Simulated scan of single mutants.
Amino acid sequence: MSDKNKLPCPCNSGSTYAKCCAVFHSRQQKPISCEQLMRSRYSAFVFQLGEYLFDTYHPDFRGSLTIEQLSEKSLDWKKLQIVETESLPSTGFVEFKAWYLVDGDFSCHHERSNFMKDHDQWLYCDGTFYT
């Protein structure tokens, strides 16, 4: 077991990474709600798992994004807070706040992400960003 598997999961679920998002990243399980997918995508951004991010991005919405672009470390993510979530049979959303460090100062990314279930798998579509 790697060291990161013993750490608290970055998605702030209260579980270890091994018992939380790692099972999705390793493809042992699929998220059963859009909130689980969103949490696993947040952790994938923390760990720069571009292939997972690409595979969980709905093809109709990813445009010209590549695995390489999604693998780049863009921000130093520090904390995730779920504000509101809803999973219907085939669509859902998660409103969240994610804090990150820039030049030693905390900033907040506030988004309402939209999800769609396709072939029994939740996929990220797009989001509304709040300032």
Rank of each mutant, 00 (worst) to 15 (best):
S13D: 04
Q69V: 00
S40W: 06
Q29A: 14
Y57I: 05
Q28E: 13
G14D: 10
W99G: 01
I82P: 04
S107T: 09
T56I: 05
H119P: 01
R112K: 15
S107Y: 15
L75D: 12
G92R: 07
D103R: 11
P31Y: 05
L80Y: 08
M38R: 02
K30I: 14
T128I: 11
Q48S: 15
Y100G: 09
E35P: 04
F61N: 10
S2P: 01
L88F: 04
F106K: 13
C108T: 12
Y100D: 04
D120P: 04
E68Y: 06
Q81A: 10
P8H: 00
H25K: 07
S71H: 03
V83S: 00
W99V: 00
E111N: 13
L123Q: 13
Y130N: 02
L70R: 06
Y57K: 06
Q81C: 05
K97I: 03
K117A: 09
V94R: 01
E51W: 02
S113F: 12
V94A: 13
F93L: 07
F96D: 04
T66F: 05
F106Q: 12
F93W: 00
W122N: 03
D126G: 06
F93S: 08
H25M: 13
K97F: 01
E68F: 08
K73R: 15
F47M: 09
E86Y: 09
G14S: 12
L53Y: 05
S113M: 10
K78D: 03
Y130I: 14
I67H: 01
W77V: 09
T85S: 08
H119N: 15
L65Q: 09
D3C: 00
D60E: 15
I32E: 08
R39G: 12
L70S: 05
A98W: 06
R41C: 05
Q36M: 14
T16N: 08
L75Q: 15
F129Y: 15
K73P: 05
H58R: 04
P31A: 12
D103T: 02
H110I: 03
W77N: 13
E51Y: 08
V102W: 11
F61M: 06
I67D: 02
G63V: 08
G63A: 00
C21Y: 02
S90W: 00
C20E: 02
P10K: 00
Y52L: 15
A98G: 02
L7A: 11
D55M: 03
C11T: 09
Q29R: 07
Q28V: 12
D118G: 00
T56F: 07
N12G: 13
K97R: 12
Q28S: 15
F45P: 08
V23T: 13
M38Y: 02
N114K: 05
D105Q: 15
R27Q: 09
L80E: 05
Y100L: 04
L75M: 14
D103P: 00
K6Q: 13
P89M: 08
C11W: 10
T128S: 07
I82Y: 10
T16L: 13
S71R: 07
L70Q: 07
K79V: 02
K30H: 14
C20M: 07
A98H: 07
I67S: 07
